[in-house]
Amino acid sequence: MKLNMQLVIAFFVSLAGFVAMSLLVRANHIVRFDGYIISFIQGTETAWLTTVMKFFTYIGTIRFIAVQSIFVLFFLLKVLKHRLEILIYLAVVFCTPILNRLLKLYFERARPDLHRLIEIGGYSFPSGHAMNAFAFYSILAFLLWRHVPSRPGRVTVILISSFMIAAIGTSRIYLGVHYPSDVIAGYLASGFWVTTVIWVFQRYQERHFPALAGAQN
């Protein structure tokens, strides 16, 4: 029950945050914020850091996540033998790019044209890399968290997933292909979707497998 309440709070925070961010972007009330963050992050530019950021951008691509998903699905099916968890993983990871595409077509925000270190086309808001990274690493953390009994182990899972999400989002700003508001909105949109799927999963599990649900909360 405690986890369900946390999910409800996260759902409304993510939804309200995304709506607020989209309104600010539409009204051009976030230009100064974007400019300040871009200047700060791109002001750290060095040759080695650019290589690092290109690496994080690569591991946030749909192609890389699709390859990683093969190993995740194998682990869920063959090692943990949890077929239901495969469904929520697929619902989160493979539906997120579709949601991102629909949102980009709706908002049609052009990418920043200030100091690009890589070239890429398409619309900017919300960031696809941010959404994909949040979806992949957050649902992976949730599934691992359910099977890690110790508190230090769970904290480690959360810290690693949080670092990967933040690093991938930051790489998009550093490389000049996204505004900070694109990345934040991507996290919020993905957070909304992830919490929705997990909440449905929890409700289903509590109804059909109450003993298992209670043991994993």
Rank of each mutant, 00 (worst) to 15 (best):
L3C: 11
V8N: 02
I9G: 11
A20K: 05
A20F: 12
L24W: 07
H29V: 15
D34V: 13
Y36C: 03
Q42H: 08
W48H: 05
V52P: 03
K54I: 04
F56Q: 04
Y58N: 07
Y58W: 08
G60D: 13
Q68V: 07
V72L: 15
V72A: 13
V72M: 15
L80G: 06
K81E: 13
I86Y: 00
T96K: 03
T96D: 01
N100L: 11
N100V: 15
R101W: 06
Y106L: 14
R111H: 02
R116G: 02
G122V: 05
F125A: 06
A130T: 13
N132Q: 05
I139L: 15
W145A: 14
H147S: 02
V148I: 11
S150A: 09
P152G: 11
R154T: 03
V157Q: 10
L159D: 10
L159I: 15
S162H: 04
F163A: 09
M164W: 11
I168N: 15
I168D: 15
V177M: 07
P180Q: 04
D182A: 15
V183F: 03
I184W: 04
I184D: 01
A185I: 04
Y187V: 14
Y187E: 09
S190N: 13
G191Q: 09
W199K: 04
H208E: 00
G214V: 11
